[in-house]
């Protein structure tokens, strides 16, 4: 029983990441009708926002202390981050809390990236077929990923969670679970409900939903629907970016994490049903949990390697049984 509970918990945080990325993919697809293969790269850019904030805060000042010497007889180098020498204890605290701080930084940065991407590239591809959209965003994903590789190198860069939530919590006697994963779960749930509330309860969201139903009519009513959709693209970018920022303490970011998550998130979208936001979110959590169940030792000893392919297998079965996905709407992406 405990083992099952643990696997469900383990799956939830990964599922949260899948759900957040898949949510953005579906949102962009539902509004702009564009298939965005660069969405995984945006998730990765978010993660590297956290990395760069951390690196910035950790910029060190080197002072030679002639009174002390090292084992080689040279003066001892004392390295203190600038921020610590300026702000003292507050500086130390800032470094420790670099991941949450990065969120504040990532929101405007990701929004900007999203808007630039939409206005600079995506808007020219509304009318072109999906194959072209896939190819051009695929090229963009390669470029973003290679630039990150050029700047930060090919190795994963581990990030630490703030000390307050760094440890683990004992839920029952046998289940020990890292705090940060719980934080991530609640974070993703908050973000998802935030997006849903935004679409449900604001006038802006209402217009966007109306536009998703019938773009032309909304346009005829004198509403500049294109601009709102651009903002929706920005929102989707921010959601994916924040998912990336918060994921860094769980998985040390490297340049190809985006593509790994993108492929899985697309499968999540397919399973959930193209065009259904609820489907994307629930399929994200579902597949995350399934994946963590499949990586249990007991399961793996019976079916070796199942953890690597379970998501794809589920996708295949779903597509054979329910071609439209779990909650797919009729008429969306039928061809």
């Amino acid at each position: 029983m405990d083992a099952i509970l643990l696997q469900i918990l383990n799956g939830l945080d990964k599922g949260g990441a899948y759900a957040l990325i898949a949510l953005g993919l579906t949102l962009v697809f539902g509004t702009l009708g564009v298939v965005n293969f660069a969405h995984g790269a945006i998730f990765m850019l978010g993660a590297f926002c956290a990395v760069s904030i951390n690196a910035l805060l950790k910029l060190e000042q080197v002072v030679l202390d002639p009174t002390q010497t090292t084992a080689w007889g040279t003066p001892l180098e004392i390295r203190t981050p600038y921020i610590e020498s300026w702000l003292g204890e507050w500086g130390t605290l800032l470094i420790q809390y670099s991941v949450p701080i990065s969120i504040l930084f990532a929101i405007p940065v990701m929004l900007l990236i999203g808007l630039v991407m939409e206005r600079g590239l995506i808007q020219f591809f509304y009318k072109r077929p999906h194959a072209d959209q896939i190819l051009v965003t695929f090229g963009l994903a390669i470029i973003l990923q290679e630039i990150i590789k050029e700047i930060f190198g090919a190795n994963p860069i581990p990030q630490s969670a703030p000390p307050l939530v760094a440890g683990s919590v004992s839920i029952t006697e046998t289940i020990v679970y890292p705090y940060w994963r719980i934080v991530y779960l609640f974070f993703s749930l908050t973000l998802i409900s935030g997006v849903f509330a935004f679409l449900r309860f604001t006038t802006f969201g209402m217009v966007v939903r109306a536009g998703m139903q019938d773009r032309e009519t909304v346009g005829l009513l004198g509403i500049n629907i294109e601009r709102r959709f651009t903002i929706v693209f920005g929102v989707a970018t921010v959601v994916a970016g924040l998912a990336g920022v918060m994921y860094t303490p769980i998985l040390p970011p490297d340049y190809h994490m985006g593509m790994d998550f993108l492929v899985l998130s697309f499968v999540v979208v397919v399973v959930g049903g193209m065009g259904s936001l609820g489907g994307a979110v629930s399929a994200g959590f579902l597949l995350g949990i399934l994946q963590s169940f499949a990586s249990m030792n007991e399961v793996n000893s019976i079916l070796p390697g199942i953890d690597q392919i379970i998501i794809y297998l589920v996708a295949v079965v779903i597509l054979l049984v329910r071609p439209r996905g779990l909650m797919g709407r009729k008429g969306v992406m039928e061809d």
Binding site: M274, Q308, Y312
Partner: peptide, 22 residues
């Protein structure tokens, strides 16, 4: 091939990644 368009692209990509992982 049960699906066309973008679904097809995603499915083939998923299968290739699956083979690569395996």
């Amino acid at each position: 091939l049960r699906r066309a368009g973008i679904y097809f692209s995603i499915l083939t990509l998923a299968f290739a990644q699956m083979s690569y992982n395996l």
